[in-house]
């Protein structure tokens, strides 16, 4: 009885959508919402779609670029630095970096749209004008840099928090022992801290790959995938095919087929994480056998 609402919600909004996405991928459904099955038509179309190779490359570059530069490397640097300085200041910086994650996406996007504004009212162009230079249309000139930095700043905070808590969990005896033995800060990090947090490092890498692969909120808000699909990633492409006002076609069938690819990856990956990160430990049986 206690479980029913939970099961219902999970069924309705997780399991059913997975099935529907997969089935819809085999139809040519449009704004009339009719189930016309077209077999593998959408997948053939995908292989012919001149945009797909570009989108695929975009997706890979975006995912692994952001992951490598920000979510892992920068997150790690932030964690190492904020745990090496005074506790209170470290906490302040971690809180500061966490703020974007809890900022409503539209507000976060608004801030970046101001910073990157092509007019002279934006921050960067304002500074350029002050130096006697001409304004630049940052977003259309450097769509890649923009989406990697904007997503990376949010992405880095997750790694930062996980790594920082892992670093703080290292018994200080280890670090003291190393210090008595003459280790410098860099040697401490290299020989003791990094080997001891390799598990969280792997976890973040795996977990964030999946979230970057499938998230597109900020790209949609800031570059909208443009200019001319230059910063459009797979998940955003699927979204635009279904809902974009510009395309105006509401190609639900094709979009669902595109999404099916991600759902498939997501399913396999989440099962893999579950196996890999020993979530099984959480499944110990209960010890009271009455109800």
């Amino acid at each position: 009885m206690f479980l029913l609402p939970g099961i219902l919600l999970i069924f309705l909004f997780f399991l059913a959508p997975v099935v529907i996405t997969a089935v819809m991928g085999f139809t040519n459904m449009d704004y009339r919402f009719q189930w016309n099955f077209v077999g593998f038509g959408n997948f053939f179309r995908m292989s012919d779609d001149f945009l797909v190779p570009k989108i695929l490359v975009n997706t890979l570059v975006y995912t692994f670029g952001t992951l490598a530069i920000f979510n892992v490397t920068f997150g790690l640097i932030l964690a190492l630095l904020t745990t090496s300085i005074s506790e209170r200041v470290g906490l302040f910086f971690r809180a500061l970096w966490l703020l974007p994650r809890f900022t409503p996406p539209v507000v976060y996007a608004a801030i970046w749209l101001w910073i990157l504004s092509p007019t002279r009212n934006g921050l960067l162009n304002g500074l350029r004008v002050a130096m006697g230079l001409n304004p630049i249309a940052w977003i259309s000139e450097y769509p890649w840099g923009v989406i990697i930095v904007t997503n990376g700043i949010i992405g880095a905070s997750m790694g930062m928090l996980i790594f920082a808590s892992a670093i703080k969990a290292i018994p200080r005896d280890y670090l003291w022992a190393a210090r008595v033995d003459g280790a410098s800060w860099f040697q401490e990090v290299r020989h003791i801290v990094l080997p001891l947090i390799r598990w969280p490092l792997m976890f973040i890498t795996a977990y964030q790959t999946l979230s970057l692969l499938t998230s597109y909120e900020y790209i949609l808000l800031i570059t909208q995938g443009g200019p001319f699909h230059a910063s459009e990633v797979w998940s955003l492409y699927a979204y635009n095919k279904a809902f974009s006002a510009y395309a105006g076609t509401y190609e639900f069938g094709y979009a669902a087929a595109l999404a099916t690819v991600l759902v498939l990856i997501g399913t396999v990956a989440s099962i893999a994480y579950w196996k890999m990160f020993r979530f099984r430990e959480m499944m110990a049986p209960p010890r009271i056998e009455v109800s």
Binding site: P171, D173, W176, A177, V180, G182, L196
Partner: peptide, 21 residues
């Protein structure tokens, strides 16, 4: 004098053996 130049050996209660070495 820095810890490393004091020529002290220190054994911790927890032993502080690096678990990955």
């Amino acid at each position: 004098v820095a810890p490393k130049d004091r020529y002290v050996g220190l054994v911790f209660q927890s032993y502080a053996l690096y678990p990955h070495m």
